[in-house]
């Protein structure tokens, strides 16, 4: 039996094992490969960095635990950046599962920067309605969220003073794992209410959002774990995403190698038959 034939019949569990090792070993023994910051991440950073202190940023936690490795690190990094710049952050979610994740990120970042709930940040919680909700936020935020996630009426929260609708929001950041997500925020908040929109998304969906970046419909985009790692690099705060990039690179190299070897033997096999 030729080498190509042998390889084509390889037990796929061996491939799983190799991929598993390619991920586990760099986590245990980090190499410290350089993380280059791409332009979309740089633009997202700049959009937040340019806001004057006290500006209102709305972050929508539209993701769930299944996409946590990609979106949760960027959630923490973005909230940290907002707090570092003394921005007021209003959290909400179009995905119910995003609420506790956003709350956790708030608590971690607030502890680091000494920020207080109600004064510097608030979590409005989840509300059903998808695009209709976004559209209604353009008319009135307190009407859609009369109370916050903890049950406090909005008028009792100092951070919400003067915030009537999306018009009073300086930047919307959407952490998007699918529908509803960046597309809906871009269409309604950006397109209809003319609010600046930026965000982060899973790597799977990143290619479909790049056209919005090119057309300047969104101000910046963090794509997957790499985007999160780039933002952590910009913040000089190495977190879970940057810590996983060695493993990401090695795993990709192994997969490229598999594809190369597979194609090579397929090519040689076909040539032999001819």
């Amino acid at each position: 039996m030729g080498m190509g034939k042998k390889l084509s019949q390889i037990d796929r569990r061996i491939i799983f094992l190799v991929i598993g090792l390619a991920v586990a070993l760099p986590l245990l023994f980090p190499i410290g490969l350089q993380i280059r910051v791409s332009e979309p991440a740089q633009r997202m950073y700049k959009a937040i960095d340019q806001l004057p202190p006290g500006s209102k940023v709305l972050i929508s936690f539209d993701y769930d635990p299944t996409t946590m490795p990609e979106l949760y690190p960027m959630n923490i990094a973005l909230v940290r950046h907002c707090f570092a710049k003394d921005l007021k952050v209003i959290g909400m979610a179009l995905w119910p599962t995003g609420v506790p994740l956003g709350e956790e990120a708030f608590e971690i970042a607030a502890k680091d920067y000494g920020k207080s709930y109600g004064q510097d940040y608030v979590n409005l919680g989840y509300k059903a309605g998808d695009i209709v909700l976004i559209s209604n936020l353009g008319k009135s935020i307190p009407q859609q969220f009369p109370i916050d996630f903890r049950g406090t009426p909005l008028e009792e929260l100092p951070i919400m003073k003067g915030v009537r609708s999306l018009k009073n929001i300086d930047l919307v950041i959407d952490l998007s794992a699918g529908f509803p997500g960046i597309v809906e925020w871009t269409m309604i908040a950006g397109g209809r209410h003319h609010v600046k929109v930026g965000g982060g998304c899973t790597a799977v969906s990143a290619p479909s959002y790049y056209p919005y970046l090119q057309s300047k419909q969104i101000v910046g985009l963090l794509g997957g774990m790499k985007g999160a790692a780039e933002y952590e690099t910009l913040m000089n705060a190495r977190g879970a995403a940057a810590g996983g990039m060695d493993a990401q690179s090695i795993a990709h190299l192994v997969i490229i190698l598999f594809i190369f070897i597979g194609n090579l033997f397929m090519f040689l096999g076909n040539k032999g038959k001819a």
Binding site: I19, G20, V23, A24, L27, L28, T66, M68, P69, E70, T202, A203, V204, A206, P207, G223, G224, M225, K226, A240, G243, G244, A247, Q248, A251, H252, I255
Partner: peptide, 25 residues
Amino acid sequence: YTVMARISLLIGRMQFLLGDWLGLL
């Protein structure tokens, strides 16, 4: 990008198993 997303999920679980569970990270 799809490969990166899937590997990210594996990394997330590995970080949990090796870090949070076994305390090796």
